[in-house]
Design a protein around this nucleic acid. Structure first.
Lengths: 140, 140
DNA sequence: GGCTAAATGCAACAATATTGCAATTAGCCT
DNA sequence: AGGCTAATTGCAATATTGTTGCATTTAGCC
């Protein structure tokens, strides 16, 4: 829910503004990675206007609290669908329909850390994105 | 070696041009992710000029044969340091010095595929990048 | 309703990336 | 070695993505 994210921001001293709600709404409704300009376009279709700079700033803010993530393989942003999980947030992006699914797995992170550690590397953060076919598109 | 990459390109019918060798040289000497414009700057310092479009095209070509990779967390390109391994190519990028190390692990890929499969997703490709500290920077 | 800090809009610009077409060059053939 | 031709590169223009400083507006508070 948009309201949940807004409350988290408020708890940190950030205001519950109309632009922030609009961006969160779009991210929540369209579960695919969206660029700031995509978001601007969708809002424009709905008769709303936000400056792209504003959208960039809102996405930065959301990402800084893990309320959204940037999906690097597509460059778009998605609303975070996990809360209070252990392990880094991973994404599965469908090549066909673009739909995105998020998950986390503590053990997998640990294994990755161990593997890296054996190569002398001390991991602090993982980036992990899978591309392939979601179940719906795989059926076809 | 630059020459090895060049031979692979030639085997595919691509020419062994001076610009291709120059880009490969830079990637091989500087083992950090470099943007096309970084590469252009380095070459300029050496008194060589390449148009940035040319560099983009060369990097695209190298990536299409896995002779180079784009590191998405930094947006730069690196020369591939593995050959004929099984499993996707993963990167460990040092937050301090920017140095990059590449590795692959077939079992890790398999585990990732299995995890995704349990969530209904059929993985075709992994993106996996770690950030943290290389051994040298960790000592400090 | 008015006040003030926070947030947004605006304008300009920087960085990154792509396209079409003209000029050049590598590899091949004498 | 010199010429031929397709492949490659350079150039110019443009698209896309992202950032900065400052004026204007607004949310949250009294």
């Amino acid at each position: 829910m948009v309201q949940d994210s807004i409350r988290i921001l408020q708890a940190q001293g950030y205001k519950a503004t109309k632009p922030r709600k609009l961006v969160l709404e779009v991210l929540e409704q369209i579960e695919k990675p969206l660029s700031p300009y995509d978001i601007q376009g969708i809002l424009r279709q709905r008769g709303k206007y936000l400056n792209h700079v504003t959208i960039y700033r809102i996405l930065d803010l959301l990402c800084s609290f893990n309320l959204a993530h940037k999906v690097l393989s597509s460059g778009g942003f998605v609303k975070c669908s996990l809360d209070a999980v252990e392990g880094c947030h991973r994404f599965m992006v469908c090549q066909d329909c673009g739909a995105i699914q998020e998950f986390a797995d503590k053990e997998l992170c640990q294994e990755e850390n161990d593997l890296a550690r054996n190569l002398g590397f001390h991991t602090e953060h993982h980036l992990s994105e899978f591309s392939g076919l979601c179940s719906r598109c795989y059926e076809k």
